[in-house]
Amino acid sequence: MPSPLLTIEVTRSEAGRARLRLTGELDFDTAPELTEIAEALRRDGCHELEIDMDGVGLCDSSGLSALVVIHRRGSGPIRLTGVRGQLQRLLDRTGLSEVLDAEAVDARDVG
């Protein structure tokens, strides 16, 4: 059952690619939903995943763990876009910003 705390919009682009746009909180309660959707996309042939984090207001250790699990279980790259604030600092401190190919939002571009 989808969580009211996290919305995941999936857009399939060219063959083998999909974009997941997250809005809400990526935490203990919602991280399993993201993992399940990513695994289903990969089973359906989407091996390259772009995960848009611009709408994520909170990401705890469970959310971070879900991103690592998606990366490790995948047969293709994942790329995080729209990363900012607390999540960017967390990814930088753990060294995962490079592993997960995280693209930070330029603070000058934020209104």
Rank of each mutant, 00 (worst) to 15 (best):
A40I: 08
S3M: 04
L34G: 03
T81F: 01
R93S: 09
D101P: 01
P4A: 05
D106R: 14
S62R: 02
G111A: 15
A38S: 15
A102W: 00
L34K: 03
E39M: 13
A38R: 10
I70M: 06
R84A: 15
E48C: 04
V68Q: 03
A107I: 11
L20W: 10
S61Y: 02
C46D: 15
V10C: 09
E33S: 10
G85H: 05
G16T: 08
E9H: 07
I51Y: 05
T23K: 07
C46Q: 13
D109Q: 12
T30N: 00
A66H: 02
G24W: 01
G55L: 04
R12N: 05
G95K: 05
H71T: 10
T23H: 08
P4D: 11
A40M: 08
R72H: 11
L26R: 00
G24H: 00
L96H: 03
I37W: 02
Q88P: 03
P2H: 14
I78L: 04
T35H: 10
A107S: 15
R72I: 04
D106K: 05
V83S: 07
L64K: 02
R93W: 12
G63V: 09
G63E: 08
L96M: 08
S13F: 06
G76N: 02
I70K: 02
V56A: 04
P32V: 06
D92K: 11
A15K: 12
T81K: 00
L80K: 05
R21F: 01
D54A: 13
G16E: 07
V56R: 01
M53F: 13
R72F: 09
L41T: 01
R21M: 08
A15S: 14
S62M: 06
E36A: 12
G57T: 09
L20K: 04
A38F: 04
I8E: 07
G24N: 02
D60K: 06
F28Q: 09
I70V: 15
T94Q: 01
T30E: 00
D27W: 00
G57K: 06
G82D: 14
G82C: 13
I8W: 01
H47K: 11
T11F: 12
V99L: 15
G82V: 15
G85Q: 07
P32C: 04
G95V: 09
D101V: 04
